[in-house]
Design a protein around this nucleic acid. Structure first.
Length: 492
RNA sequence: GCUCGUAUAGUGUAGUGGCCCAUCAUGAAGCCCUCUCGAGGCUUCGACCCGGGUUCAAAUCCCGGUACGAGCACCA
């Protein structure tokens, strides 16, 4: 038709028959996070569940930011849950129960609506373990780990699987009895199907015996649930509607879904994100950091070289920057490597307008200024915001960086000088480089965290009355935070 | 080995069949600036993993390949 009668004819027909087909859709770029699936107008219940074996770090912040943002956007509930059921491999750290809620509030901008501590809810997990045994969809397995691995790989059932409900209930008693099974002797398993395609799902373990004292509840309990069981039961009890987590936990979802169908529960919506690597942070783990601090490699959890939230905060990284950083990365399942400069650019946006300018001269050399120029005065602390003024006086000499000396330059906000320091013009007269300078000032050290090293740079800092904790912009260098003992670089 | 997942500029990201010779940010380069090479403004650069298929039409759906990642713990 288009060839015989032309496009206009088609347009005319469409206009009268179906005008909506002619409307141009306007391309819109989605901002913020994608819509939460299957919300159906309900208020979502989300949770973030760290192991309190140390303070929160950069790696935790993604889960916290995303969950908190969704909860906030939809007037929902954010649960902060301590998954502290392991006393052996990654034992809980008592201080973390205090620091994590504090760090969570700093990062998210509001406190979690509910705090749940798994070790205080052990009776509920035991209750569900008994229900599982009584319902015949769980069993006590006394096979050595290596033997069970063979069953898992070979798709064969272990002998314990055939035990009666009575046998299992008895086995459960013996697991809980200090005189009975010892750690490693027996484990509670969820009965799934040994011929399942995915080997990870075959009769997975739900609880084991641990005799190490728990820092909060001591030796009150002997049988402790594993993550997949504890988390699954707790999510149901708390009415969690959406689980957002790393895709390394995909098999957990599948395991837990099998458990949910045994119990007759409905599994929450699940969303995953991929792995994020920040090259500059290297391969830090909570347990590794703990070890390094103990060995004196780092001062403490606030050491500026560490990627903990407390260290990041001390270094002048704002929680808003962390939030917009993660929200921009979104929820793709891709494994990504992000440079720290991306986070820094978000941070620049949140600190730029409130950071007073200050000059810091590294490799300082004196500059003798001759000629007609004001020997003292005031300069604005910020080029566009009203952050007051800083004053200078030539009485104690003028310093510039050695790389800037010996050539015609413009002293920023002051005057043009020639290579020898003779004043040539008060107004900017040509395109010569603009440099920063200090009149008077005092010695200071600028510390920069560079990976696992701490770089120290001596220099002369402009005199100022700014309080400790102020984030300043060192002209032509970058942002730094004023500390008791000098300057700590934020980023450039 | 088995299972699962992902593939858009240097780095991230938008995009669910026609708005797309593809969005935005970051980065790099350059320009501007009564004044920061590192602040701000502007400009430019740069991508749909490969091969088939479905369709009038595919970055978008299907199949195969490749690459990368994850799980297969009595850790979380």
């Amino acid at each position: 038709m288009a060839t015989t009668e032309g496009l206009e004819a088609i347009e005319t027909i469409l206009e009268s028959e179906a005008p909506h087909l002619l409307e141009k859709k306007i391309q819109t770029r989605r901002v913020g996070l994608p819509e939460l699936p299957n919300l159906n107008g309900e208020k979502p219940v989300l949770r973030f569940a760290p192991n309190p074996n140390g303070p929160l770090s950069f790696g935790h912040s993604r889960g916290l930011v995303i969950n908190a943002q969704y909860a906030n956007d939809h007037d929902g509930v954010l649960i902060l849950r301590f998954d502290d059921t392991d006393t052996t491999v990654k034992p809980p750290m008592l201080e973390a129960y205090e620091s994590i809620p504090r760090e969570q509030e700093w990062l998210c901008g509001y406190p979690a609506h509910r705090i749940v501590i798994a070790s205080e809810r052990m009776d509920l997990y035991h209750e569900h373990a008994r229900k599982m045994l009584a319902g015949g969809f769980g069993y006590v397995c006394t096979c050595p780990a290596e033997d069970f691995k063979e069953h898992r790989v070979g798709m064969t059932e272990c002998p314990c699987r055939a035990n009666s409900v009575e046998d299992n209930l008895d086995g459960w008693k013996r697991m809980n009895d200090p005189e009975g099974y010892q750690p490693g002797d027996a484990v509670l398993r969820v009965k799934t199907d040994m011929t399942l395609k995915n080997p990870a799902l075959r009769d997975w373990p739900a609880a084991r015996i641990q005799t190490n004292a728990h820092p909060r509840v001591g030796n009150k309990w002997r049988v402790w649930p594993l993550l997949d069981f504890q988390s699954a039961v707790e999510d149901h009890l708390q009415g969690v509607t959406h689980i957002i987590r790393g895709k390394d936990l995909m098999d957990s979802t599948r395991k837990q879904t099998l458990l949910y169908s045994h119990f007759g529960w409905e599994y929450p919506e699940t969303i995953y994100w991929g792995r994020v690597k920040v090259h500059e942070f290297g391969g830090f783990s909570t347990s590794q950091m703990k070890k390094d601090i103990a060995e004196g490699l780092f001062d403490d959890w606030n050491d500026p070289r560490l990627p903990t939230l407390s260290a990041l905060s001390r270094r002048g990284i704002k929680s808003e920057a962390l939030r917009s950083f993660w929200i921009e990365l979104g929820l793709t399942q891709k494994d990504i490597a992000v440079p720290l400069s991306t986070l820094y650019s978000h941070n620049t946006k949140s600190i730029e307008s409130t950071a007073p300018r200050l000059a810091f001269i590294r490799n300082a050399v004196p500059l003798v200024i001759t000629g007609d120029v004001e020997r003292s005065g005031n300069i604005a602390s910020h080029p566009s915001e009203d952050l007051g003024v800083r004053s200078f006086s030539f009485e104690e000499g003028v310093w510039v960086e050695s790389q800037d000396s010996g050539k015609p330059v413009r002293l920023k906000d002051l005057c043009d000088v020639d290579a020898d320091g003779n004043v040539e013009s008060i107004e900017r007269s040509d395109k010569r480089p603009i440099i920063h300078w200090v009149a008077g000032g005092s010695p200071a050290t600028l510390r920069t965290a560079e990976g696992q090293n701490l770089k120290l740079e001596e220099g002369i800092l402009e005199t100022h009355q700014l309080p400790v904790g102020t984030i300043v912009q060192l002209e032509r260098i970058g942002y730094a935070i004023i500390e008791e003992e000098g300057l700590l670089m934020v980023h450039d």
